[in-house]
Lab assay of single mutants.
Amino acid sequence: NQASVVANQLIPISTHLTLVMMRSEVVTPVGIPAEDIPRLVSMQVNRAVPLGTTLMPDMVKGYA
């Protein structure tokens, strides 16, 4: 099972991601792979992401 990136807190819209905001967890459905966490740092979310939500490629500007 592959770990995905999950929000560690509420991430407001247009926030630049930091390591503190993300954790890796095995979830269904599978989202952005956990090994991409370093790549996600300083990218922006294009919507509010609630605590515990799996980050999907379409939620992060410039990821997909």
Rank of each mutant, 00 (worst) to 15 (best):
I37H: 00
P33V: 08
Q9G: 05
T28C: 09
A64P: 10
P29N: 05
E25D: 10
G31I: 00
E35A: 09
N8M: 06
T28K: 07
H16C: 14
H16G: 07
P33W: 10
A7F: 01
V27H: 04
Q2N: 14
M43V: 04
P33Q: 07
T18F: 03
G52P: 00
Q44S: 12
R47M: 13
Y63V: 04
V45W: 00
L40Q: 00
A64H: 14
G52K: 00
H16R: 12
V6A: 02
M59I: 05
T15Y: 14
Q44V: 14
S14H: 15
M56Q: 12
R23P: 03
V30E: 15
L55D: 02
P38M: 09
G52M: 04
R47T: 11
L19F: 13
T15C: 07
S14M: 14
S14A: 14
A34Q: 07
V45N: 02
T54Y: 02
I11V: 05
V20E: 14
P12E: 11
G52C: 04
E25V: 10
E25H: 06
A3R: 06
R47Q: 08
T15L: 04
A48P: 10
V26R: 04
M22F: 05
A34I: 06
P12S: 07
E25W: 06
A7E: 01
M21P: 03
D58L: 11
T53K: 08
M59H: 09
A3F: 07
Q9N: 06
G62C: 12
G52W: 04
N46Q: 12
R39L: 11
T53V: 15
P50V: 07
S24F: 06
V45Y: 00
S42T: 11
L55A: 02
V30P: 12
T15N: 04
R39S: 11
M59P: 00
G52A: 07
N8D: 11
L40R: 00
L51S: 14
I13H: 14
T18P: 00
Q2F: 13
H16K: 13
R23Q: 04
P33S: 09
A64Q: 15
S24T: 14
E25K: 06
Q44K: 08
A64I: 13
I13K: 10
P29C: 08
R39Q: 11
V60I: 12
M59S: 06
L55R: 00
S4R: 02
I11A: 02
I13Q: 13
H16T: 14
Q2R: 05
M21I: 03
V45G: 03
S42C: 14
V6N: 01
T28H: 11
I32E: 01
P12Q: 07
T54M: 03
L51P: 08
I37E: 02
N1Q: 12
E35R: 06
R23W: 04
V27C: 05
V6R: 03
N46V: 15
T54V: 10
G52F: 05
T18R: 07
M56N: 05
V49E: 03
T54N: 02
V60T: 03
M43Q: 08
K61R: 15
S14P: 00
M21Q: 04
L40K: 00
Q2E: 15
V41Q: 06
N1K: 08
G62A: 08
A3N: 08
M22A: 01
S24I: 09
G31H: 01
N46Y: 09
I11Q: 01
S24M: 08
V27Q: 05
R47H: 08
T28Q: 11
M22E: 03
P57T: 05
M43R: 11
Q9T: 14
M21S: 03
S24Q: 08
V27T: 13
D36Y: 10
N8R: 10
V30K: 07
T18M: 13
L19Y: 14
R23M: 06
T15V: 09
L17S: 00
M56D: 05
E35K: 07
L51A: 14
I37K: 07
K61M: 14
N46W: 06
